[in-house]
Amino acid sequence: MNIFRLAGDMTHLASVLVLLLKIHTIKSCAGVSLKTQELYALVFATRYLDIFTDFISLYNTVMKLIFLGSSFSIVWYIRRHKIVRRSYDKDQDTFRHYFLVLPCLLLALVIHEKFTFREVMWAFSLYLEAVAILPQLVLLQRTRNIDNLTGQYVFLLGAYRALYILNWIYRYFTEPHFVHWITWIAGLVQTLLYADFFYYYFESWKNNVKLQLPA
């Protein structure tokens, strides 16, 4: 565990907590894409298939449980909570799941480390995570008024990805045989998707104006 990895995990955790806090305390999910949240739930469910079979560390197990629990509870809140569900922008959140899920599944069937169920699911979860933010970014672009918490949520997620890249660079130089092409390329693509958002996020911060993405 290096400092980049830890900082990355902590920003990831913070992003999830910011979102849960927003939904739980304000009882509103305005500007939050249910599609993205459902894709994340699927990402964690397919990636953490090893949770009860391969023990890595207590930290690892606890974090996995947190990410699984939080992603499914966010989905539950938006779909089922009697107050929160009313604030869901259903008509704006129109991205189709299968546009992302099917290509990722096909890619995972072709490109994986080993042709076993768990390895294919693992590759699938990496490809899907790379693009899972897209419905959220599209929704942000359509929402004229992005509230601070939603903006911070996306910013923290982007920061988490950027820190993971630093973590891989560090591990590449400090650990023998640390080469993971699938993880790296999927992670790089994922981080690049945030570039545009980051640009507008910093501009709005620098000029002290409300964040708004151009249509």
Binding site: R5, D9, H12, D50, D54, I56, S57, N60, M63, K64, F67, W122, Y164, N167, F178, H180, T183
Partner: peptide, 10 residues
């Protein structure tokens, strides 16, 4: 070393 080596990330 762990069977799932390198898959120790989240």
């Amino acid at each position: 070393r762990h069977f799932y080596s390198g898959k120790d990330e989240l």
